[in-house]
């Protein structure tokens, strides 16, 4: 869990450079994200955690906060195992 949070935070820090993102903070409400970010996030999660994100996963709530992303990754990993 902790390791996942560190990795996700490090990735997100590239987009939220002047803002210390909290684990339950709404990423989309901050207004920094654009359509390019969405695609980079999908690629990052797929590569970093070895998951495949498909049409069933396209719920913004899966990606809204760091906590939600970690829960989503755990869910995908559980499904795969």
């Amino acid at each position: 869990m902790e390791e996942k949070i560190i990795k996700i935070k490090a990735f997100l820090a590239k987009f939220f450079r002047k803002h210390e993102l909290q684990e339950d903070e709404d990423i989309f409400a901050l207004g920094f994200v654009n359509s390019l970010f969405a695609m980079q996030l999908v690629m990052f999660l797929e590569k970093e955690f070895g998951i495949v994100i498909d049409n069933k996963d396209l719920d913004l709530n899966n990606f809204r906060t760091i906590k939600a992303i970690v829960a989503f990754v755990d869910h995908k990993l559980n499904l795969a195992s």
Partner: peptide, 13 residues
């Protein structure tokens, strides 16, 4: 995809 993901996910990729 889903409603609202046309640009961010489908078109972009």
């Amino acid at each position: 995809g889903a409603v609202g993901t046309g640009l961010s996910h489908v078109a972009m990729s």
